[in-house]
């Protein structure tokens, strides 16, 4: 991974300061997204950051770039439309676990099997923070939250495994406690041609008192520090994706080069849709009418 900044990080400084709680993991993600964009040399005019709704989904407002702060759960769909309309843009999706793995999980899975060239950064805090602390799709079993006072009885979603079996071609996990490492994963994800998921442990310091910075720090390790993990093998990645408990892996699980959806879309052969003229060719139009005569 490149550690050279192609552009100064201040390029991406947004108009307002984040209103996240002090200590929120999302600060680390914001910095990593800026750093990753700087490393990848994405110009602000060509960067579109799309989010849904939730604490983390406020992120586009704290950046200098184009953005859509869309509906709860719909960021991936909106981003897909933007990318198909203008393939020259770098489209990064940012959001939380409730947004992406709960209400928006349908779009998440389908975008991966399409292998659209999108980068999806999920700030996974295993809780609903903006709505003050209910269980989320990644809340651990038995965790007591406002909505699960007797302990959560549902199994958490495994986003890494889900991404692997759904056809994502870049699957990684970062941690807000390791912002430099995470920035590298996001930068590589942006440069990867195809759907990239970067699931990020981004602790909620206000509402999740189980999955805290110290909790993660004593468990996480980097896959690249352990020889033997082959990130070109989906079966090996899938096995690693189930590692949870005392040891939790970070880093690149899997990466593969596959044709993107855009590559196989015939209407994009002439270049981005947004650059095509609107007026229809007269002889083409006449040939369409002939079918009705």
């Amino acid at each position: 991974m490149s550690t050279i900044l192609e552009l100064p990080i201040e390029t991406y400084a947004g108009p307002v300061e984040p209103d996240w709680c002090p200590g929120c993991g999302d600060f680390g993600v914001l910095k990593a997204v800026k750093t990753a964009a700087a490393r990848a040399g994405v110009r602000t005019k060509d960067l579109v950051v799309v989010s849904g709704i939730g604490c983390s989904s406020n992120l586009p407002g704290y950046l200098h770039a184009y953005g859509v702060h869309s509906l709860h759960g719909r960021a991936v769909a909106v981003a897909s439309g933007i990318k198909l309309a203008n393939t020259d843009l770098k489209v990064v999706i940012t959001g939380g676990d409730g947004d992406g793995y709960g209400i928006g999980i349908g779009h998440f899975i389908h975008a991966m099997r399409r292998n659209l060239d999108l980068t999806y950064v999920v700030m996974n805090n295993q809780i609903y923070g903006l709505t003050t602390g209910q269980a989320s799709p990644t809340t651990m079993k038995e965790h007591r939250t406002k909505s699960t006072p007797r302990g959560n009885v549902e199994l958490p979603i495994n986003p890494i495994a889900l991404a692997l079996v759904s056809g994502a071609t870049y699957v990684a996990r970062g941690f807000s406690g390791e912002p430099g490492h995470m920035a590298g994963l996001i930068a590589d994800g942006i440069q990867h041609k195809g759907f990239a998921l970067i699931d990020v442990f981004s602790p909620c310091v206000t509402y999740n008192h189980l999955n805290t910075y110290p909790w993660f720090k004593e468990r996480v390790y980097k896959l690249e520090d352990r020889p033997g993990h082959d990130s070109t093998q989906v079966a090996a990645a899938l096995e690693k994706s189930f590692e949870w408990g005392d040891r939790i892996p970070l880093g690149l699980f899997y990466r593969d080069e596959q044709p993107t959806y855009e590559d196989s879309e015939p209407a994009l052969k002439q270049g981005p849709l947004v650059n095509q003229k609107l007026e229809v060719d007269g002889s083409l139009f006449q040939s369409l009418i002939e079918e009705f005569l």
Partner: peptide
């Protein structure tokens, strides 16, 4: 006729995606 007419035609997973994708494309300028 999409290919001949230069139209990306996307069958989606549900109507939530349908509308949100179309709006995303509209926002991006097509």
């Amino acid at each position: 006729h999409g290919e001949r007419c230069g139209i990306v035609v996307k069958q989606c997973e549900d109507e939530l995606a349908v509308a949100n994708m179309a709006i995303g494309a509209g926002y991006a300028g097509v």
